[in-house]
Design a protein around this nucleic acid. Structure first.
Lengths: 341, 341
DNA sequence: GTGAAAGCGCTAACAA
DNA sequence: TTGTTAGCGCTTTCAC
């Protein structure tokens, strides 16, 4: 481990360049309003001394941190079993670094973690927060509201009644689900089932709504509850086959669920897609492209969602937005046809 | 989005409690050397005003940030296809928050990102760094050394010659590989192949070494190069079957590779484990527990690795460690026997 | 044990 | 255009 060296200050650079601190500061912050020869001299001094501004000192006066907190509430380990989280993070990271902002990651695992996050956000360490509000009963949004930090949510928050001014980015879960089910119907399937996700998340509820939009009058027995995991998909598929042996199509709430369903289907000797057509949701490549047969699914651009969240937040932070920030942004989905339906 | 409220300062608390700023500061930082009644009064004032210390101001004088950077160099998208990254992050996060440190995530995607990270680290925003040095030719370590930030590496850095004082945490890749291959040999297999990982990473090189420790005198044709991906596993397995049709066991560099190999084996009509036994590495649950048959593999405790990295770094930061920090810590692995071998 | 005072390194009026 | 000056909110000697 290396030792920490004493860093040169603005003062030192000023002395070396033979100018005042203010001038150095100007140059360092863009150099507007400083004559070229001086700029040059200061730049050289900065270079020679290896000067890097002290962020703490700067923040103290500007009240800006150029840092954004990303809060991932994950009581369960599910997030860690699929690349969703990582992809979104990458999108966020790209956008943030493009605007010279840092990403402070706050992972919460339990109740006491919530308090810690609340304190941190209230502590004014960051300019804003990006929050993944995963469950209906999550206390986090409440805490954040109170902390008074500009925030953008990932996924439509369940507690938002639409009248408040929560900003969020979401996929068109309902529309995507509709498209998937319509595709199944278009294939001539008449007994189209749905394995839901964890229904305390709006994404799962919305996909179920989409299914019902198309299959509203269908046998309610065809809807089985899942939980977004492969194991849940297996369980649900078994239940489904027992309950409705004549099922000829399944719309699974996500790819992981579909992969579990696929396994059970094979185990029970049903051919896919001949006997039962299967569609997933997400287009999680490592899953959808590894199933047998390859999975037909509804793609959502996860990385873009992350990027968009960051962009929305940053725009709000630079109060340039004459008009109000849009309350919710919903990204389109696309059906990716492979072999399973 | 909520608006930012004016935060109360130390001064305000002092006024309200009828004491000096110094006293409030003492109480806020533990309250040593302040008489009980005063402590009480200050605490109440803090409570009533909802005072939270301004970290920037504090850092400015203490030169501490209570923040650690986590640098993940990932030119490829591989990290995002398996949960490795997320698990390690979680371990790190747990340990860090337990010690009131924040996690600043630095994702790098290309050359220019390296410069940015170097600048950030040199900028003294964080007290230390946790770095995943994934490839042999990575310029990052160099940059970090120059930035002079205390650092712990995840995985043995390839450029470390053992004499320098780099601190790292790694799994016993070589020992784990040996155990896997020995298990295969113990099963009576004589044509034991190895599909390697990306050999510009020490983990892959070490696993290959472990294989050779046991199979040193084996047919060199039995070693095929992979890249830690399922696709790479498929490719390698095909090559292997063409080259050595009599292969009766495969040690894959990781579970993802094994899953690809398994697929090809099935496609070619080889029974697992009867005809060909297969072992993976990692015990990545979402992969190892979804394969058919269930994958026998070598487990490494990834979350613990992350936790340990953080612990090592924090210990070094509180210069309490009388003795030197250990150069490298190597965690043991365990063979998890399932159905494939 | 408590308070007064001096900065930490920087930006942003305001003067010159 | 450039420099002077006054803090930002906090910790930390040093007196009392």
């Amino acid at each position: 481990m290396t030792d920490t060296a004493p860093r040169p200050t603005l003062e030192a650079v000023a002395a070396r360049a033979g100018v005042s601190r203010a001038t150095v500061s100007r140059v360092v912050n863009g150099g507007d309003g400083v004559r070229e020869p001086l700029v040059e001299r200061v730049r050289r001094a900065v270079e020679e001394l290896g000067y890097v501004p002290n962020q703490a000192a700067r923040s103290l006066v500007t009240r800006r941190h150029d840092a954004v907190a990303v809060v991932v509430a994950e009581p369960e380990t599910r997030v860690f079993a699929d690349p969703f989280f990582a992809l979104q993070l990458r999108g966020i990271s790209k956008e943030l670094t493009a605007h010279d902002n840092q990403l402070v990651l706050l992972l919460t695992e339990g109740r006491d973690d919530h308090a810690r996050v609340g304190r941190y956000l209230a502590g004014g360490h960051v300019d804003g927060a990006l929050v993944f509000s995963l469950h209906l009963d999550d206390p986090l949004p409440e805490l954040i509201q109170r902390a008074g930090v500009p925030t953008v949510f990932g996924g439509r928050p369940g507690w938002s009644d639409g009248t408040t001014d929560v900003v969020y980015v979401d996929s068109d879960n309902r529309g995507g689900a509709r498209e998937a089910v319509r595709h199944l119907v278009g294939l001539g399937r008449t007994r189209v089932a749905h394995i839901t996700g964890a229904l305390d998340q709006t994404s799962a509820a919305d996909r179920l709504d989409g299914y019902r939009d198309v299959m509203g009058d269908a046998d309610p027995e065809l809807v089985v509850r899942g939980d977004f995991t492969p194991a849940g998909g297996e369980r649900a598929m078994r239940e489904l086959l027992d309950r409705c042996p004549d099922v000829d199509a399944v719309f699974a709430a996500n790819d992981l669920t579909a992969s579990g369903a696929l396994r059970v289907l094979r185990e029970r000797g049903r051919r896919v897609p001949e006997d039962v057509a299967v569609i997933g949701f997400d287009d999680m490549l490592p899953v959808a492209e590894q199933t047998d047969p390859l999975l037909t699914t509804v793609r959502q651009d996860i990385e873009e969602m992350g990027r968009l969240m960051a962009r929305l937040l940053l725009r709000d932070l630079d109060r340039r937005s004459g008009g109000a920030t849009p309350a919710g942004v919903v990204l389109p989905t696309t059906l990716i046809r492979r072999a399973s339906a």
